[in-house]
Design a protein around this nucleic acid. Structure first.
Lengths: 252, 252
DNA sequence: TTCCGGCCTGCCGCGACGTGAGGGTCAAGC
DNA sequence: GCTTGACCCTCACGTCGCGGCAGGCCGGAA
């Protein structure tokens, strides 16, 4: 089977220009040309294009894609594995961000519960219970939401204040460690990381070392969290993340 | 609190050049300058930067980000919701791709089971059971893998051939419908879409209408699938996807 | 005073295409 | 056989989101 640029473009959902470009840089040259100079793609070309598009959608530069596809040591199974790994990695990152946002949302709801007199300012005449209902409808079926909600929903104002106090006490000690120049991979810093994890386990959800390192990476990646920590003292995010990683490694 | 470009850059994990760029195009201008012309960022600037980075990492163009952030009708809660929706959407897409790859991997393993004499050609002297073990270790804890494996692992050669025959019979009919010009939203095409879904339910996993439309979108997005369908007859991918969507809508 | 690191403003470059301009090709219908 | 319109070709310049460097000005520490 032979196809023209237009047909290939339509099938693969790319523009003709893109195919021209791939030809120019030698990433995907059609297997032949007609007498008039028209590009002719065959099934093998199409298959290569599929792979190109896959890696491209995950943000790989074209040069790197060429290297991957032209690697003679990689069989089809290896490609599948690599693609699977890439996807699960991406999903993991996104899920961490989701968890962070869900926590942020939860915090907002808690805040509102604690200061009911503010509810009118924020919501006007809308009942916050209604708002909670809407939230449940929208993402009530994600697990993180359920877990964090079930525990946190029952926290009283006193619980909340105790948590805050515990966090602040811990925060003071890690800031001290950082400003004192204690290395992030020292036993002291790692102990602080472990305390951080225990705080999460105790108050929110069962946080494994693996999840904890994921959380650390998220602190680094998510602006809302870096803002939080950097506002306390510059470099704290990185310090904490390093300590968490070191702690997780030492326990593995 | 006021920060210099360098401090902000480090905290937000971007380069100074990026901050200069954001300033140039007016996306994020520091709230002030020192007497010497040094940029001075405050906490509000930092917060804005976090949001910029968030949307940027999801691939939004800067202009669009500016529009989102400068939208006067969006409160913080609305931003959280939008971000949550975006993330879950992305995760869904990626998970569909993962499922597709897992099925492709499963198909490969089946293929190997069916023709054991080929195993030496492909694996050399490696035992395929070992390979399967490795696969379990790598992604044994994802749900799609477990479900598809548990069912498909027990398929005999006869089962596999029956599945293939059923698929081909169905394939013949949808190609006929397409070439006959039957509209994708006609009752006939929708019935074929429904049969497609039932085939999945019967042989692999419980596929809801929602999952089915997701699958259809993936067919369009994933090159490996478009290749498969377009090779049969050009336009088939789109036709099937449309029919699936129409079917799902009509059942909702 | 003299460093050295950090900041400034240009300005050129790059990757991955988008978007014409100007012109040849091909199948269909008259 | 000829026109017409859709499709193809090759330049070639434009865009987006920065990276990187030059040439020069600050600012705190030794």
């Amino acid at each position: 089977m032979a196809y023209t640029v237009g047909q290939v473009a339509k099938a693969a959902r790319v523009t003709v220009r893109t195919l021209h470009h791939y030809d120019e840089i030698g990433l995907l040259s059609p297997s032949g040309r007609t007498a008039a100079g028209y590009r002719r793609y065959d099934d093998a070309d199409l298959e290569r294009l599929q792979h190109v598009r896959f890696y491209r959608e995950l943000g790989f530069p074209l040069e790197e894609i060429a290297a991957i596809l032209d690697d003679p040591t990689a069989d089809p199974a290896a490609h599948l594995r690599r693609q699977h790994d890439l996807l699960t990695g991406r999903i993991g990152k996104l899920q961490e961000m989701v968890a962070a946002i869900e926590i942020a949302m939860e915090a907002r709801r808690m805040e509102l519960k604690l200061t009911p007199e503010e509810r009118f300012e924020v919501f006007g005449d809308v009942d916050p219970e209604e708002h909670a209902e809407e939230a449940r409808e929208r993402w009530g079926d994600t697990e993180a939401y359920r877990v964090s909600t079930q525990r946190a929903a029952n926290y009283s104002k006193e619980d909340w204040l105790r948590l805050k106090a515990a966090q602040e006490e811990w925060g003071g000690r890690i800031v001290a460690a950082l400003t004192a120049g204690t290395p992030a991979d020292s036993a002291e810093a790692m102990a602080l990381a472990e305390e951080h994890r225990q705080l999460i386990v105790g108050w929110f959800y069962d946080c494994s070392y693996e999840v904890h390192t994921g959380l650390a990476d998220m602190y680094l990646a998510d602006p809302r969290f870096t803002a939080h920590y950097e506002a306390i003292v510059p470099g704290l995010t990185e310090y904490l993340a390093e300590a968490i990683h070191a702690n997780a490694i030492s326990r593995a």
